[in-house]
């Protein structure tokens, strides 16, 4: 019962704060609302049996990446608009954005609700009762960390190592790009 309530709470929070991310004039507000979104998502992850991911979401995303964003926003001293000046597009751009977004949502929703695997349109929720639960089994067997770490260091070992390489390249690239050129 509590889980259901929390699910709805986090969902609404994520969507609302996501909307605020897009609609706030001040980039700092946007960043902070995005942090809220990430926290909400992390809650949803927990409710969906992804405990380790939820933790990483908070630590890496909300903690590290978002701080980096905030840092850059403040470093560049953005967000000070004078009078009516904003970084929003004009009327045509807004109309296009709205139209595209609504259409996209309609299409995705239609796709999600019409999935064959989920029992077809309209009877989705009921048909899922008693579905297999591999994650729950893994959690019971290896614990929240081990459930993810098992496949990660087993069958996904090479991609995992490649990820480290990617991060290394990203670090080097970031330093090279952001370094102040000698005059």
């Amino acid at each position: 019962m509590i889980a259901d309530a929390l699910f709805y709470l986090f969902s609404v929070a994520a969507v609302v704060s996501g909307l605020f991310v897009v609609t706030r004039k001040n980039p700092v507000s946007s960043v902070l609302f995005l942090v809220v979104t990430f926290f909400s998502l992390s809650g949803l992850f927990v409710l969906l049996d992804a405990h380790f991911i939820a933790a990483v979401q908070v630590i890496v995303y909300a903690g590290a990446i978002m701080v980096l964003f905030l840092f850059v926003v403040m470093l560049l001293n953005l967000g000070h608009f004078e009078g009516e000046q904003t970084d929003f597009r004009g009327a045509l751009g807004r109309f296009a954005a709205a139209t595209v977004s609504v259409t996209l949502l309609a299409l995705v929703a239609r796709a999600v609700l019409g999935l064959e695997e989920l029992g077809g349109q309209g009877v989705v929720a009921e048909s899922l009762a008693g579905a297999p639960d591999p994650v729950g089994a893994a959690l019971e067997a290896r614990g929240p960390v081990g459930a993810v770490a098992g496949p990660l260091f087993d069958e996904y070992l090479i991609p995992f190592e490649l990820t480290s390489l990617l991060l290394l390249v990203a670090i080097v690239g970031a330093i090279v790009l952001a370094r102040r050129r000698e005059p």
Partner: peptide, 13 residues
């Protein structure tokens, strides 16, 4: 999907 759409709208907006 809703969050994704918000993201797309934001990029466009």
């Amino acid at each position: 999907a809703t969050l994704f759409t918000i993201g797309v709208g934001g990029v466009l907006l």
